[in-house]
Amino acid sequence: MFKGKTILVTGATSGIGYKVCLDLLDAGAKIFAVGRNQDQLAALQKLQPENVQTLAFDLTQFTKYSETFASVPGLDGVVCSAGIADSNPLRFFSLEKYQRTVDINQTAPIALVAELARNRKLNAGASIVLLASIMGTKIGRNGGAAYAGTKAALTGFAKVMALELANKSIRVNCVSPGMVNTELADNQSEVSTEARQVDMQRYPLEKRYAEAAEVSSAIRFLLSNQSSFMTGENLVVDGGYCAQ
């Protein structure tokens, strides 16, 4: 399905982004993997050296985008998966934490797509997938104002970018998962194991969180020609959480 296609993935060294890379490689794609963990990038490249290019880069270094992404080949797809989920309740609000969340989750995806579009790195018919969340687009949660705001913003970006790039047959969509069993979820130290178990019971489908593979499948669908007439949309993967 993806043989001969080249797809750039941010957040490629962990969680959903890493799983997307593995799945796309299995499907015959070439990957341009962007992440901050050089060891993980090297390990990813060793899997299929002929099909993986890597770039160790902090996506908040906006002034370096032009020089950094100049070497990117023509792309048939982009997956913006890099993100953070720091708790930042209003009572203890940190402007520094808020701005970092905005920079990584919200500004980086639109800055990257703009950079690639301006420099004609997106092939006609390319598909862009932004990793949003049901947090912000469908639900709220204490301490998550910054995270929710950034993820809701991505769905708005997708609609606008879909219109701006439609004349080149380039599609832009979002995937919004609920909670997913990844390092990002595991590293939320303010949430106890007991609280996680209680939260899982709120997911109607099997009383559990999604696996990264289940979100990756939705992303692959939006990257593929099977979704060729979908753009500006937000595909929810939440085990029925928002149906309640």
Rank of each mutant, 00 (worst) to 15 (best):
L44Q: 00
N105I: 02
A12W: 01
Q48Y: 09
A132L: 14
I139M: 13
L122K: 04
L55P: 02
S14G: 07
R91N: 14
A126I: 05
G17R: 04
T6L: 04
R118S: 13
N123L: 13
D76K: 10
D76I: 11
L90V: 15
T10P: 08
L24I: 10
A145I: 10
G35H: 03
N51I: 02
L112N: 05
A42P: 06
A117E: 13
D23C: 13
K19Q: 15
V79Y: 01
L8H: 04
D23A: 14
K19L: 05
N119V: 07
A114C: 07
D39K: 15
L116S: 10
D86Q: 13
S81R: 02
A82R: 06
S127E: 10
V78F: 05
C21G: 05
A85L: 09
L90N: 15
A145G: 11
D26C: 01
Y65I: 10
L41K: 00
K121E: 00
N142L: 14
G17I: 03
Q61C: 11
Y147K: 05
G11R: 01
C80P: 04
Q45R: 13
T13G: 03
Y98Q: 12
G15M: 10
K30N: 12
K64I: 04
Y98F: 15
D103P: 01
N105Y: 08
T63Q: 15
T137A: 07
P109R: 14
L116R: 07
C21P: 04
L95C: 05
L75N: 06
K30I: 00
P109S: 13
R91H: 13
G140H: 08
A56N: 10
L41M: 03
Q48F: 14
Q99M: 11
L8G: 06
D86H: 09
L112M: 07
N37I: 06
T13P: 05
T6M: 06
S127L: 11
N88K: 08
V129E: 02
A111Q: 12
G11P: 06
V129Q: 00
G83A: 12
D86R: 11
K46T: 15
S94R: 11
T63E: 15
A145K: 10
A126E: 06
R36D: 11
V72I: 10
